[in-house]
């Protein structure tokens, strides 16, 4: 099989990157190790834990189940596109205030799942929130405080509008 490298152009968090990649390079590895965007985490590499969730052309997907070469010409957003430590995104602020993270490893995946979710569902019920995060595993929190944080963020975001 060929050792061929594929030139790709990817827009990540608004910045355009040109790189050459092997076909088998996973997008998660590309973002983390080729671009140095370490906020996207890898927990299982078989599409279940959700830690590697990113926003691909506006949609949350698992970056471990897609090859970097497939991102050619596409737009990606990672957790680095949200707030900064000094200026958190409202969802991040709610996670902070409600103690919705402990080890923090799964958190970027939750955030990248929830940011587009809250855009589409500005006023979710507790039950709907739980369903929305069922594709993300958190071993630390027991989810209770994550649900509270999402409710809180939904309120904050709707007041902003």
């Amino acid at each position: 099989m060929s050792e061929k490298l594929f030139p790709i152009t990817v827009t990540v968090n608004g910045e355009e990157y040109h790189r050459e990649v092997e076909a088998r390079l996973l997008l998660s590895d590309f973002l983390r190790h080729d671009l140095g965007l370490l906020g996207t985490h890898v927990g299982c590499e078989h599409g279940i834990c959700g830690a590697c969730t990113i926003i691909f052309d506006g949609e949350p997907i698992r970056s471990c189940l897609i090859f970097a070469v497939q991102a050619n010409g596409h737009d990606i957003r990672t957790v680095e596109s949200l707030g900064t430590p000094e200026n958190l995104h409202p969802l991040q602020q709610s996670f902070h205030e409600k103690h919705a993270l402990q080890c923090g490893f799964c958190t970027p995946g939750f955030l990248m799942t929830l940011v587009p979710y809250l855009e589409e569902h500005p006023n979710p019920s507790r039950e709907e929130i739980r369903e929305a995060i069922d594709g993300n595993i958190c071993r630390c929190t027991g989810y209770e405080k994550i649900v509270e944080a999402v409710q809180d963020a939904a309120e904050k975001l709707s007041q902003k509008k």
């Binding site: 997907i61 799942t113 594709g135």
Partner: peptide
């Protein structure tokens, strides 16, 4: 079918 992120792709 699986979870929302899987259905998106």
């Amino acid at each position: 079918i699986a979870h929302p992120q899987i259905r998106r792709r």
